[in-house]
Each structure stands twice: as C-alpha cells, then as structure tokens.
Design a protein around this nucleic acid. Structure first.
Lengths: 380, 380
DNA sequence: AGCATTTTCTTCACTGCTCGAAAAAAAGAT
DNA sequence: ATCTTTTTTTCGAGCAGTGAAGAAAATGCT
C-alpha cells in the first residue's frame, strides 16, 4: 500500500504517515518495496510499503472435534508451512493435550529453521468454555481435553507467548474479512457442524483475542427439559442442530439417548446429501434443527440484534432444508416484525474464516504487545 | 470536588486539572465554591469546584403505561421542579402525544421563568421500540402512542434539542449509580411490572442516550406458540411475567385471552400481597413468571453474561415467589454450571434508577454536544 | 511568635503527536 | 524543454499533557 493510500485509509495526514512510516522502515518492521509500476498513470509513481515478512512469525493452531491444524505464518500473514492431524475421541485420553501439541509444534519448527529466532507467538483456538486464567478449557466437546493444562506447559517449553482462544469468537471477525461489504455492519456467524456456535462482531477495530464476541449459542436452551445435549444439559440448541443431533433425529433415536462423542465428517456429509435428495426422515431432522436455530436466533435478536447473519460449517450445506423453519421462527419475534429480520447468507467453507480471523487477531495483538513495546531506536 | 481529587479521579496531572479547571471557571461552566472547611485537616485547605447550576437546564420526561413525570433539573443535577400526571389507556386516543407533552412542558417552563434562557435539552424516555429516526415509537405498550410523531413537533415548538430514548436502556446505568460496588461490573437490570424489560450496562464510561444497552427481553420468546402477549406475538416472557400476565394466570384466564391494556398499580400490589400471604393460585402465577424470567436470563447468559443481575419494579416485591424457579432455570444452563450463576439482588424502587440514569446520560450528552462546541473564549 | 510541616494549587519549560503549507521529487503530456 | 500531475518529504506551529519547582494557606511544635 502506498503512503498516500495509507493516509486516506487511516485518516492521518501525509506528514504523519511519512514520519511514522519511515520510522517503522528504519526499525525494519515495514519494508520499502520500491516503486510499483502502474501503466498509464501520471505523476510521481507510488512507492509501496508492506510488512516485513521476516519481522516475526507466529504459529496458529486450530483444534476441533475432528482435526487439528498447525499453520506457520509470517508477519505479512503469508502461510509458510502447515501440518494437519486428525483428532479421534481417544487421542487426548492417550496423549496429554500439551504433549500432543508440543510434538506437532516442534515438527513445524524443525521443518522451518529460518523462522526460529523470530517466532513470537503461538495462538491456539479450540471449541468450548475457557478457564478465566486462559490456561485450559473448563469444558469442551473435544473429548478428554477439558481440565488439562495447555498454555502453561507450552509456554515453559517453547519460551514464547502462547494464547488459548475460544474458537467461536473468531468466526465473525473472519467472516467480516471475507465480505468487504459487511465492513460497517454487526455480524453474527453461526457455525453448524460438530457443534453449534455463534460469534458476534461489531464494526470498528479488530477485536483482540481476549475480548468479547464469544457466545454459548449452541448451549442456549431451546426447549425446557428437551433433548439431551453433549454438555449434559437438556434442550440446548446444539442438541437439535449439531451433527450428532440431526443424525439422532433422522434415525428415530430417542432424544434422551446419550450423544455420540464424534460424528465422522463423511457420515454427516452423506446425511446432508440424503436430505437434499428428499429422504423424509432426514428432511424432518433438518427441519427440527432449523426450528431450534431459528428460535435461538430470534432470542438473540431481542438482546443484541446483528445486521447480518452468516451460516457457516458443514451444516451450512443443508441450509435450504432449514431456511423455512428459521424464517418462521424469526417471524414469531416482535423485533423481527417491527424491524425486518436480518439477511441470512451461507458461507460453505468454515475453516478459512476461522483461520483468517485468528490470523488477523494474532498479528494485531503482536503489533500491540510486541512491536509497540520496542523502543523508538530499535532495529530488528 | 477539589482539584486534587479531580486529578486522582480522572488520572490527569495536577497541572492539567489546574489549566482545564480554570478555563472552565472562566467560561462559567464550573464555579469556584471557595474553601471548604474540613476540621482537623492540616495543610492548605481544598477549594471545591462544582458545576455551575445556572449554566444550563434540562427537562427529563418519563413516560410509562401508568404515568408521566416531568422534571426540571439544573446543570448540577439538582431537581428544580416536577410535575406528575397519570396516564390512562385512552389518553393518547383523545390527545395527541406531542400536544399532551407540550402542555405539561409549557406549564413547567412558566412556573420556572428563571430557567427559560438556559433550557438546552428535553429528554423523553418511553417503553417500546423506537423508530430509527428517533422521532417516534414504532411500537409501545403505552396505548395509542406508537406511530405518532413526538420529537419533531416538540423541537419545532420549543426551539431546543429534544430526544426520545428507550426506557429500558436507562435501567442498568441508573442502577450502577445507586450501587457504587457494582461500578466495575457489567450489570443486567430486569424490570418487572407493566412490562418486562432489561437494560444492560458495561463498565466504563456512561452510555450516551443513542448507544447500546437496550434489549427487548420482555419479548424474547419463552415457549414457542405460548401465551398471548400484548405485542400480538405468542410465548413472550412478558406474556408470563408482566402484571397483566400474572393476573391472568392467577385467575385461571386462558393464556390465549387478549391481555388487558393496563393494570392499575394498586391492583398489582394487591396481587403481590396475596401471593406473599400464600394464596395458592397467586403463588402459582408468580412461579410461572419466575420460570419465564429464569429461562430468559439463562438464555441471555449464553450471549452476553452480566456479572450482576438486579430485579427492579413493582414485581420485584414478589421476587421471593419467583426466586426458586429463576434459580432452577439458571441451573439448566451449561454456562451457569461451568461459571457460577450471577448474583441476583432486588431494588424495590424503579423510578429513581430510571431518573438517575436519564439525568446522568442527559448531562453527559450536553457536555459533549453543547459545551464541547463552545469556543475556548466563550463566557456563559 | 516563629518556624517546620503538610497539603493544595499554579507556573513554567518540555515532550510527543499531529497538522497544514510549502517544497522537492519523479513521472507523463505538450 | 517546459508544464502538469501525483507522491513524498520537510518545516514550523499548535495542542494536550507532564514533571518539577515554587507559591499559597492552613496546622503543629517549640
């Protein structure tokens, strides 16, 4: 981006951008990329400045019920290397979470020795409820992970900052990045898959990893004394709309039956396919799921109504089977009658928004915690 | 407050406080009250500065289903004069809201000619859903008020700034003022009475009148296809917990019967008394109300959990009859199991918090919109 | 009474951030 | 070669805030 565009984007004057920009270039936080040739343009050509890729690196860890992904990124946000591992319900029974994570992280570091000295942060995201200390999960749909210390042993072993973040928090921030037209709107992103989750994002600056936006939407009660949920409670939205719940409803298993620990992604895809091809019991199951999500969303609308709703995750493919029930439920809400209901769109890939949201949040935090702490004269 | 205390409260240095304070005293926004004698204190005595009462005046209008209250206040927040009028379900059928308001406002102004030149703002609060323009209510439990233009005619007639605010928005801000120990906590205040409403307040600066904190808690769905609500929908929390709903349940009226337009305050007080003395049908009705509020609160807890909950309004007197059901409902929620449920306290008078919340918000807004706009050299 | 102590408030020189205006630089257009 | 356009830098100024020093106004001790 050129200095002139930076000035108009940030609202600062050219004078300030020039001063700050050159200071950061001296510190090697930014780099001068030289003139960028734009054919047919008059005037002095713009000089692009961009982040110094080698200023620092971070590793982003996405942990969910079915898989784990480890991504080494540089300061410009470019993906340098990536490892994927599948997660089974017994994995964290056999191997302590911190040990499993450390093995994969070490492998990634050994494969990329050039990043070693500048690895500044490891950001882990996982589904569930965090302990207030941020060291571990208090509860999680990922089997056997809750209660195990994660952050402290990794921090001690690796000697760099490690953070643990609720995954749902990132959904909406990431979705905002993918749809520039939503930039100035508040967004609720609902994930439907191995769990049901919602992230909320207000316009304005990027939410830091530590702040708001997290909800327990999946465990909001839908019906008092209703279906059994993986969390042990009854009547949660998740107990009607997560993969295991749809499967249970479709095959006529009583809704008080204990939920499956995990549903293989392929099995759920097959279920969606059956629903789309019109199989009665499956269509019915997705209708039930839609009703739970619709009432949940209607309830959210009464507390903090988002401008836009995005449905995401494996269950998003079945949105057509849920849409009518969702809209009907929204229609029973005064808020949606008076102010029209929010537009709902579907985004099929959930991994990219989560990754992008986490990436942006991590780099922003590094800017604030690491780079801001460097003295004025520092050189990297 | 002395300059030294101002410095430690605001976090600014003594030098800055001195400069800014003297500037504002020159402008007659603040006044020097002279030394305040504190017996037994050593050192130079503190000089108290306070708001110049005569710097400006505002009128605060509280409008609800049963009554209207008009309060003339000065810049120091002192109540100068007040008018109360009862509101009947036919009032706004017979008299247009703007006309009714104008009559009372004119009376208040005539009684207090000394405030005339410095009346800077009229702030109206009412229950219901506001039009985005802020000129009128789109929907309200106050009969015949929705849809009628309120702000524009008053602004034209009185020639000063007029604002219309959702009442529930003020509940929590006001409650925060009354309980200093809640200063750094997020608070949800639930009003139970002619309606059911909730205001949320985050710690930090005072919310301006235009910003967040408003909810439609009373019209959050409790049970799909449930009891008929005054808003025309079915199953709202209000349809189980507002005064008309408790009355309906207690006397075995079918929950699909059209709700009463208003319940006289005395009739509801009597109902609370009957419940407290153990009358079975009334106790049952309040149990039902408590269950609706409890599930509603549990649902709110999944989206933006407050640290503290305050119950307020005429129905607060019956809190003991609802407590068990509220706590039971909270217990069905994963969030309340993992992180303990928020403490719930009762505040019996609802009018004071609403008034205080509105007062503070109005004066803060005047600081920002009016006083901040005055040039550096201005003198009042 | 006279001086030390304590506390409040003001003054003053200085920093850090930002801005507007002018100037410099680097290209294409004439 | 000169004009125009666009980007970038330089320079002086303004503003909000600070720390340190000092002035002011009381009490307490001898």
């Amino acid at each position: 981006m050129s200095r002139t565009r930076l000035a108009s984007t940030t609202g600062l004057s050219h004078a300030s951008i020039s001063a700050i920009g050159n200071e950061l270039i001296n510190q090697h936080v930014l780099v001068d990329e030289g003139e960028v040739a734009e054919p047919g343009a008059r005037g002095r050509p713009a000089v692009r400045v961009s982040f110094n890729r080698r200023a620092c690196h971070a590793i982003i860890v996405e942990l969910d019920v079915n898989q784990a992904r480890f991504s080494l990124v540089d300061y410009a946000g470019t993906l340098v290397d990536r490892i994927e591992r599948s997660v089974t319900p017994t994995l964290f029974h056999e191997t302590r979470p911190a040990v499993f994570l450390r093995e994969q992280l070490d492998r990634l570091r050994q494969r990329n020795p050039e990043a070693e000295g500048t690895l500044r942060r490891i950001a882990i995201s996982a589904q569930g409820i965090l302990d207030p200390t941020g060291d571990r999960l208090k509860w999680s749909p990922i089997a056997h992970i809750a209660g195990e210390s994660i952050v402290a042993p990794l921090r001690a072993a690796l000697g760099c900052e490690v953070t643990l973040t609720k995954r749902g928090r990132l959904l909406a921030e990431g979705a905002r990045l993918l749809y520039p037209e939503l930039r100035d709107l508040s967004i609720a992103t609902i994930f439907i898959g191995s769990t049901v989750a919602m992230g909320m994002s207000l316009p304005g600056r990027v939410n830091a990893l530590g702040e708001g936006g997290a909800t327990e939407f999946g465990h909001m009660n839908h019906l008092p004394d209703g279906a059994r949920c993986r969390c042990g409670m009854r009547g949660c939205i998740e107990a009607y709309a997560a993969d295991y719940a749809v499967l249970r409803t479709a095959y006529g298993v009583p809704d008080q039956a204990p939920p499956a620990a995990a549903v293989p992604p392929a099995a759920f895809q097959e279920l969606v396919r059956l629903g789309q091809s019109g199989r009665r019991n499956v269509v019915h199951a997705f209708n039930v799921a839609g009703r739970a999500i619709g009432y949940g969303l209607a309830r959210v609308m009464t507390i903090s109504p988002p401008h836009h709703v995005i449905i995401i995750g494996p269950g998003a493919s079945a949105f057509d089977l849920m849409r009518a029930e969702i809209e009907a439920a929204l229609g029973t809400s005064l808020v949606c009658r008076i102010n029209s209901p929010p537009p709902i769109t579907v985004h099929h890939d959930e991994r990219e928004p989560i990754f992008q949201g986490m990436l942006l949040a991590t780099l922003s935090e590094l800017d604030q915690s690491y780079f801001a702490g460097l003295g004025a004269g520092t050189r990297l």
